[in-house]
């Protein structure tokens, strides 16, 4: 199940947010070795963890966070525009209907196809919910085929470069009903992945 947390309901979920920052520490600091954003030795946080962020969090049957991605408006200074504009050919996309996706991850134990497909489905479902036409981001280049196999339509926006010793590329993912249908076909379910009855302000 997927829980959406933003500034309108973040006060209701201190435990989920704490787990999310700890999980990011385990994945991005411990596993991937990103030391720059380590906080208090147990969290991973950066300047985009603020009121403008939307957290899309994978919750297991015990109610614990097991994965997440973060959406951030591209109209505001964001990671691609501030840190990696050189990875984008031409100008960085900045539109009200395009958000940036960062920190997509699952806990080591949750890394299997079902949980992954559910989080990928959330990209399309939450994107449609927010009225987005696309999301931009950085990915490992060799991750593209799996995302295509899941049903996402994804295009490079620059030539890949080596980061952390691997080929990484800036991309834009189209948000469409068709993508969501393809992903749902692969998941074997058309049911929404989103947790219902959340006290969340309508924003679209």
């Amino acid at each position: 199940m997927i829980r959406i947390i933003d500034k309108s309901n973040i006060h209701q979920f201190p435990k989920t947010m704490d787990q999310q920052f700890r999980l990011r520490h385990a994945v991005f600091v411990k596993e991937k070795g990103w030391k720059d954003f380590e906080k208090e030795g147990v969290y991973e946080k950066d300047q985009y963890d603020n009121d403008n962020a939307t957290y899309v969090i994978s919750i297991d049957s015990q109610g614990d966070a097991i994965g997440c991605f973060r959406l951030y408006p591209t109209m505001l200074p964001h990671m691609l525009s501030e840190t990696f504009p050189n990875l984008v050919e031409g100008s960085v996309t900045r539109r009200p209907d395009v958000y940036e996706i960062t920190r997509f991850h699952l806990s080591k134990a949750a890394r299997q196809t079902t949980a992954w497909l559910e989080l990928v489905a959330a990209i399309a479902e939450v994107g449609l919910d927010l009225g987005l036409s696309g999301v931009t981001g950085l990915t490992r280049t060799l991750r593209i085929p799996a995302m295509q196999a899941a049903g996402l339509s994804i295009r490079p926006t620059g030539l890949p470069v080596f980061m952390d010793g691997e080929s990484n590329v800036s991309v834009i993912i189209d948000i469409t009903e068709q993508s969501l249908s393809r992903i749902n076909l692969n998941r074997g379910s058309t049911a929404s992945v989103l947790e219902r009855n959340l006290d969340r302000r309508d924003r679209a």
Partner: peptide, 20 residues
Amino acid sequence: TDEANFAVELIGIYAFNHYT
């Protein structure tokens, strides 16, 4: 060169996707 290899990498990935 790295740049040529990166271009070829993208071409290979998208050709495979179109094949499927």
